[in-house]
Design a protein around this nucleic acid. Structure first.
Length: 464
RNA sequence: GCCGCCAUCGUCUAGUGGUCCAGGACAUCAGGUUCUCAUCCUGAAAACCGCGGGUUCGACUCCCGCUGGCGGUACCA
């Protein structure tokens, strides 16, 4: 049995790893692990005009942050490198030339102007927009390539049908006459995606091409290249593409898409992966929360649905909260320290964990909720200054407490509220705002214990 | 326009011819616990299974058509 080798092929043309790529990576990763295969990351940097500085580096580090470690890639090595397409240019050229020799490709000298004019006319006539084969019959092409700019195009047969069996969707077929003479090698010497993937997937012995649905219509062109070069086909599987709430293809215009955004928001890799696993797939026992390991164990590529699911950040938030609540408090402390930075005293952070653990959904919720432990309120959400008489009484009573424990403090305040004939809810709200500045806070008694007697008194006195 | 993919609650989904007047989760709403919030618990509302034809004793489940959504249609991936 052939070894399973899969890959993802991100392009360094965006700020960072796209969440859609995380999804495809997860599927590939799980499939590889499940089948004892290899998971490869290949950088497809062939579009020189859209290259984004630093993108490649961020994509790779995001992949590691999220926990989808790859077996082969530009920074981890492997025996099928180089894993960056810009370093494989001679390879693409060689195969493009081989295609020409065999009559399955040809040089094309058409200018971009002619091409766009051609497209315009076709659109007006409402006929399919395709290359018209203008350069196909040109003689003495070899002489011209010395002086003129050229591209190499795939010579698609006008007859016949190209079909393939998609692991997720079943049989898919296209009529050859509707397939465009795709550019294979661009005039700058770089390959287009179509030549690049085929050559690299073949050379890197990729067994299963698992990618998003947007590639379905170019698959027949890829298959033609495999066949023309006499190469064995990989197995194709086109998964769903993630959607915006309005069902269009997930995009940065309508949804946060960069992995780094999710990291900055305090989403946990485990939760993101768990949530993504539920897109187009469901646990056989109906579970919602499960680990990556369990996903790998239960996942079957054939069970992936072909419908494009809408990305629902509300459910992701809920799931993130589930993960936060499941943490041991020591681990949550570490996560929070990593997130908020070293400026915050660790011992104090540790004490606050039990109070906030079931109150936050994201790591970024921590400071808004627990920030008052580290810093006195700058402002107050209700008019607290008009309550000076009551505050004085609170101070007196609190000063009399000798054992500063949540329970004792709470009891004393309860008694005071009764004496003053103020509803306890109202009473505690005044105290809460006085100490935290906010109407919403962790449990007050425990918070006061952590704050300490002196600090509590100082905060109250500062309001007089 | 042309080609292709897809179609169950608002969202993610279960469901592979009868056990479904369609189950779970998120979100929503109501109630309980509670010093706020959150957690937790209980309950409610929410899909005439996109529409129309078949096939069948019987279709959410199979077939066809339509409609709709999405993707592709680049010297972008």
């Amino acid at each position: 049995m052939n070894t399973v080798r899969v890959r993802i092929a991100p392009s360094p043309t965006g700020e960072d790893l796209h969440i859609g790529n995380v999804y495809t990576a997860l599927i590939n990763f799980a499939f590889a692990r499940k089948n004892n295969g290899k998971f490869v990351v290949r950088i497809e940097d062939t579009d020189r005009t859209r290259l984004v500085e630093g993108s490649e580096k961020r994509i790779l580090s995001s992949l590691k942050w999220i926990g989808l470690n790859y077996d082969e890639g530009i920074d981890v090595g492997g025996s099928y490198g180089p894993y960056r397409q810009s370093e494989r240019l001679q390879l693409y050229k060689r195969y493009a030339l081989e295609l020409i020799e065999k009559g399955h490709a040809y040089y094309c000298f058409c200018t971009p102007e002619r091409l766009s004019e051609l497209r315009k006319v076709q659109q007006e006539k409402k006929i399919p927009t395709m290359y018209d084969g203008h350069c196909k019959e040109i003689k003495n092409q070899e002489l011209r390539i010395k002086n003129d700019k050229y591209v190499i195009r795939l010579n698609v047969p006008d007859e016949g049908v190209t079909e393939f069996n998609d692991l997720i969707r079943g049989k898919i077929s296209f009529e050859n006459k509707l397939l465009d003479d795709q550019v294979l090698l661009k005039s700058d010497g770089y390959p287009t995606y179509h030549l690049g993937v085929v050559v690299d997937d073949y050379l890197m012995k990729i067994s299963h091409v698992i990618r998003a649905e947007e590639w379905i219509s170019s698959t027949p062109k890829h298959i033609l290249i495999y066949k023309f070069l006499g190469w064995e086909l990989p197995i194709f599987a086109h998964g769903p593409i993630l959607r915006n709430p309005d069902k269009s293809k997930l995009s940065k215009r309508k949804n946060p898409v960069w992995a780094s955004w999710y990291k900055e928001q305090g989403f946990l890799p485990e939760a993101i992966l768990n949530y993504l696993a539920l897109m187009g797939w469901s646990h056989p026992e109906g579970k919602d929360i499960f680990s990556l390991e369990e996903f790998i164990e239960k996942f079957r590529l054939e069970d992936l649905k072909a419908v494009g699911p809408a990305f629902d950040i509300k459910k992701l938030e809920w799931m993130n909260g589930e993960y936060i609540r499941k943490f041991k408090s020591q681990n949550l402390k570490v996560k929070i320290m990593e997130f908020i930075g070293k400026d915050y005293p660790e011992e104090l952070v540790e004490k606050t964990i039990p109070l906030i653990q079931e109150r936050i959904k994201k790591l970024s919720d921590y400071l808004p909720l627990a920030g008052f432990f580290f810093e006195r309120p700058q402002s107050y959400e209700t008019d607290i200054k008009s309550k000076k008489d009551l505050l004085k009484k609170m101070i007196e009573r609190l000063e009399s407490i000798s054992t500063w424990r949540a329970q004792a403090v709470g009891d004393q305040m309860q008694v005071l509220a009764v004496e003053q004939k103020i509803k306890t809810g109202e009473f505690f709200m005044i105290l809460r705002v006085a100490l935290t500045g906010k109407k919403i806070s962790p449990p007050l008694n425990e918070s006061m214990e952590i704050l300490g007697k002196q600090e509590v008194l100082n905060r109250l006195k500062a309001l007089l």
